[in-house]
Simulated assay, not measured.
Amino acid sequence: MLPLALLAAPAMAQSAPDGAAIFTRCAACHTATGAGVPGAFPPLQSDFRTLAAKAEGRRYLALAVIKGLSGAITVQGKPYRGFMPAQPLDDASAAAVLNHVGAKIATSGPAFKSFTPAEVAAARAGGAKLSAADVARLHEAAGGQ
């Protein structure tokens, strides 16, 4: 039989995922500052903020993390043709890393509104049949620059 104190103890709250810690895997290509590598990996700056200001852009950003990218995109007027692997993250972790980029890395452009795990889950469900190449093709239509 459990002591009464254990029965009455509140459930341990799970801590929120650490977007900065998750971003360390992104920084391998995009760099710690989000500056990217010219010709290889795009910067995570004003293009990110521009996309995050529109519903279709937010969907694209969530899908880029969840599904990855394959193919040509243009970011800040420069072409990139590469591959970004899908990240094996749950919805809360994907939202956390997107929020870290939007709040701490991409600091120029429109005001940033945080992503929620529910928003990421909706993008995941709606984009379940998309490939990384399909997601890359969404960039320009979503308002990427």
Rank of each mutant, 00 (worst) to 15 (best):
L4S: 11
L4C: 00
L4W: 07
A5H: 11
A5V: 12
L6D: 15
A9P: 02
A9G: 01
P10A: 14
M12P: 01
M12L: 14
M12A: 15
M12R: 14
A13F: 05
A13Y: 05
Q14R: 13
Q14W: 02
S15Y: 00
A16P: 00
P17W: 11
D18P: 10
G19M: 09
G19Y: 06
A20P: 03
A20H: 04
A21S: 13
T24Y: 03
R25H: 10
A27G: 08
A28E: 13
A28I: 09
T31F: 01
T33V: 01
P38W: 09
A40Y: 06
P42I: 01
P42H: 04
P43T: 08
P43D: 04
L44V: 03
Q45K: 14
Q45W: 04
Q45A: 14
D47L: 00
F48M: 06
T50E: 12
T50F: 01
T50D: 10
L51Q: 03
L51M: 05
A52R: 06
K54D: 10
K54F: 04
K54C: 01
A55S: 15
E56T: 15
E56H: 02
G57Q: 03
R58N: 09
R59F: 06
R59D: 12
Y60W: 12
A62T: 01
I66W: 00
K67D: 04
K67V: 03
G68W: 05
G68C: 03
L69Q: 13
L69D: 00
L69C: 01
S70L: 12
A72G: 03
A72R: 15
T74Y: 01
V75T: 14
G77S: 11
G77Y: 05
K78Q: 15
P79D: 15
P79V: 13
Y80W: 02
Y80P: 04
G82P: 03
G82F: 05
M84S: 08
M84Y: 01
P85V: 11
P85G: 09
P85Q: 10
A86P: 15
P88T: 11
D90M: 02
D91A: 13
A92T: 10
A94L: 02
A94H: 01
A96F: 11
A96C: 12
L98E: 04
N99W: 08
N99Y: 09
N99S: 10
H100D: 06
V101N: 04
V101D: 04
V101I: 15
G102S: 09
A103S: 15
T107P: 04
T107K: 14
S108A: 13
S108Y: 00
S108P: 00
P110M: 07
F112C: 07
S114P: 11
F115Q: 03
F115N: 04
F115D: 03
T116I: 08
T116Y: 06
P117T: 04
E119D: 09
V120K: 03
A121D: 07
A121F: 07
A122F: 01
A123V: 06
A123P: 02
A123I: 06
A125M: 06
G126S: 12
G126Q: 13
G126I: 10
G127V: 11
G127R: 12
A128N: 05
L130P: 10
L130R: 12
L130Y: 10
S131L: 10
A132K: 05
D134P: 10
D134C: 09
V135G: 07
R137N: 12
R137W: 00
